[in-house]
């Protein structure tokens, strides 16, 4: 990475297991780059302010709000977006439990929950609550989301 004066920079990213090269502004957020440079529009802009969680992706093994992260910061990490999930159990659970309506917050919720399940396969109610408070769903009353998460956790 060689910064020139306010110029664009070339950046290598590992997204969904693929090596991608993009030319970006250092001020571009990861969300900007995913959506506008890589066409990965599954991560949703909801506030660009880290408040709603709709743009959540997994960086390394942690959920991250891609609007709160510069793309350059993701350079040394594996990034997984909703497009990179392949029949993860939580996706089917969201369908079966009716855990979404308009679907706009869904990719962010699913990525957050997917990271949660991997990290804490037996997460208790408090942990689930702590993690899921990071995302806003405006359509459901959260009960269906809760059921979907529970159905994917070990007892």
């Amino acid at each position: 990475m060689h910064p020139s004066s306010y110029g664009k920079i070339g950046l290598h990213l590992n997204i969904n297991g693929e090596e991608r090269t993009v030319t970006i502004r250092p001020a571009d957020t990861l969300l900007d780059v995913l959506r506008e440079h890589l066409g990965l529009t599954g991560s949703k802009p909801g506030c660009l302010n880290g408040d709603c969680g709709a743009c959540t992706v997994i960086v390394g093994d942690l959920p991250m709000k891609s609007c709160l992260m510069l793309a350059v910061e993701a350079a040394d990490h594996q990034v997984i977006t909703i497009e990179g999930l392949n029949h993860a159990p939580i996706q089917q659970a969201f369908i079966e439990k009716f855990a979404f309506q308009c679907g706009y917050c869904t990719p962010g919720f699913i990525m957050n929950v997917h990271a949660l399940i991997n990290r804490h396969p037996q997460a208790d109610c408090e942990t689930v609550k702590e993690w899921l408070k990071s995302n806003i769903c405006r359509c459901t009353g959260y009960t269906e989301i809760e059921e979907a998460v529970r159905s994917c956790l070990l007892p």
């Binding site: 910064p3 004066s5 306010y6 502004r25 001020a27 957020t29 900007d32 660009l48 510069l70 350059v72």
Partner: peptide, 11 residues
């Protein structure tokens, strides 16, 4: 979207 440019350094 940040409406201005900046350089990024990683010391």
């Amino acid at each position: 979207m940040i409406p201005y440019d900046f350089e990024y350094y990683r010391p």
